[in-house]
């Protein structure tokens, strides 16, 4: 596998002086073709900012972004639209389809913007939508599609110009669990069958199942994954140092709050004993963050 997209020492500062925010601080990362990278982290930790920098939508304050050997963070603004158009495919939480265009046209438009003739663009769009199981929906307007269908249209749109990297920000956040699963499988297939790099930002624990690698962003910095765990009740990622814990049957569990722990205990319907976090086995924790072998 070859490294497609690499970022090195990337920092992003918004604003100046007292009100300035360092949304991303010295992050280095790379993603290979055929790989699904999941970026997780609490709200406001800089995930979307990092993804925007990776996708050449935002210029880092410091550091470099290299795509297929080209330092795109160094390119002048006028050279960036074609890079976004041809090298990246974006998938958004809100789907962001153009409401006035049919599913087919939404997908074809992106090819047309890249200079493909309309007839060819429509043909390719139709093909892609068919592959994604939307053959019956091509003529529908976004308003007439379910959330899962919209997101599949968005994935087709992201794919039509054959980009190197797919960047998805919370692609399943607006979907129910079965549609969410569907989208995750689709994104994984995109990486595996088409050899694309897929970078997903998500809170969604379920996405771990399809990720080849998970990184944790907090306060704009990548954190050691070993210190993270998953609240079994609400599914939130919690830092092991700060978690509310519960040891039960020799197993240590981590919760985001006392409320979740109480709920967990209620569900189990039995007494339990709590202990401070720093002791006990970390088996569940390791399991939660173990990268899948591709």
């Amino acid at each position: 596998m070859t490294t497609t997209l690499a970022i090195r020492g990337v920092t992003k500062q918004f604003g100046h002086g007292a009100t300035s925010v360092e949304a991303v601080r010295g992050v280095g990362l790379s993603v290979e073709s055929g790989e699904v990278l999941l970026i997780m982290g609490p709200s406001g930790s800089g995930k979307s900012t990092l993804l925007s920098i990776m996708g050449a939508l935002l210029r880092p304050t410091a550091g470099t972004v290299t795509l297929n050997g080209v330092a795109i963070s160094q390119l002048p603004e006028r050279d960036l639209p074609p890079v976004r158009l041809r090298e990246f495919g974006f998938v958004f939480q809100d789907f962001n389809l153009l409401a006035a265009l049919s599913a087919l046209e939404n997908v074809a438009l992106v090819a047309e913007l890249a200079g493909t003739a309309r007839a060819e663009a429509l043909r390719r769009a139709g093909e892609l939508l068919t592959e994604l199981g939307l053959a019956e929906r091509v003529a529908f307007l976004p308003d007439q599609l379910s959330g899962g269908e919209k997101q599949r249209v968005a994935i087709a749109r992201a794919l039509i110009n054959d980009p190197s990297v797919i960047l998805a920000d919370e692609p399943t956040a607006n979907l129910d669990s079965s549609n969410g699963h569907e989208i995750m499988r689709t994104l994984r297939a995109v990486a595996k069958e088409r050899g694309r790099s897929v970078v997903i930002v998500s809170h969604d624990q379920r996405i771990r199942d399809i990720a080849d690698r998970v990184v944790w962003l907090e306060d704009g910095q990548l954190r050691d994954l070993m210190t993270m765990a998953v609240d079994p009740v609400c599914g939130m990622s919690v830092e092991h140092d700060r978690a509310v814990t519960l040891e039960q049957g020799g197993e240590l569990r981590f919760f985001c709050s006392r409320g979740c722990r109480a709920e967990f205990l209620g569900e189990l319907d039995g007494p339990a004993e709590t202990r401070p976090a720093r002791t006990g086995p970390l088996a569940s924790l390791f399991q939660a963050v173990r990268p899948k072998t591709p």
Binding site: G55, P81, R84, L85, R86, L113
Partner: peptide, 16 residues
């Protein structure tokens, strides 16, 4: 504006 932002993010040039 939101749709314009999406078009820009996708890579549409301003002149389009």
């Amino acid at each position: 504006r939101h749709e314009l932002a999406v078009l820009k993010a996708i890579g549409a040039r301003n002149r389009v």
